[in-house]
Amino acid sequence: MFTRITAAVGIASLALALAGAAHAQSDFPTRPVTLIVPFGAGGGTDNLVRTFQPALQEALGQAVVVENRPGGGSTIGTALVTKAQPDGYTLLAVDTAVTVNPALYDNLPYDTLKDLTPVSLLATGPVILIAHPSVEAKTMDDIVAKAKAEPGTLTFASGGNGASTHLALELMKLETGVDVIHIPYKGTGPATTDLLGGHVQYMFNGISASRPHLESGAIIGIAVTGDERNPAVPDVPTFAELGYPQVNPMSIWGVWAPAGTPDDVVAKLSDAFAKAINDPAVVEKLNDLGFFTVGSAPGEYGERVSSEMKKWKNVVETAHIVVE
């Protein structure tokens, strides 16, 4: 039943696409645009997209349909977009996973840079190293000293093997040469719970998820990534300030189109996304959620992704992270 409906819709949209191909570019978009979020509703990427969705509809002059296609660490939704018509009507909004997955998995059902074309870097987000107040080592120097004196004793929670919170830890291990225990969880939610309970000692996490606990004193902040202190947590120093400038993992969010999407359509989309994400009301809301809004040109996003991919490939290979 469903496959038949999907097939019918597919054929209909194919027909539309073919009919429209000749003159679609100039008056793009003429029908609703689908933005695929390869994660569940209510997650970070979903929250980001839903926040600027109204502004994007206004900028494009067309309805924008957000579709959650979760699963396989974003690979299922991403694969869908790689197979979509390259007409600009099916797009992908994704987080750091898109830069990390090629290093983590050797059986990805697509080649990220060949099958997708970048549209815009939407936002970046710093990561914060937090700790349970009961820990002895409360500064970066103390942590490094303690981890070197007693290797394999400090415990660091993460949102899962290969998750951005795990890779931040691996980057720290790599840059400081320390040996600590990694405790993976199914998502940062349960990891935060165990950190609050003092069952694990440290954790890299997003700023917005950590802020209320920092304010209540249930956890302490050690350091944030980013070039300058974060307005949401002004008391927490940056890694660079503390003498660890190499420990600088950032989460990034961006939009992709299927490879082969006409350049002028990509340019038009990129402009619309930049306009939507930099809408003052949107910026204010997103800053509160811990995002730094960007809205870059396609090329800039592509370069950023290429350099991030190299960085994470190095981290994943050195740390021997296995996710088959």
Binding site: L104, N161, K186, V323, E324
Partner: peptide, 8 residues
């Protein structure tokens, strides 16, 4: 995916 090892 196994949470601990990352193996499928």
């Amino acid at each position: 995916i196994d949470v601990n090892s990352g193996a499928q």
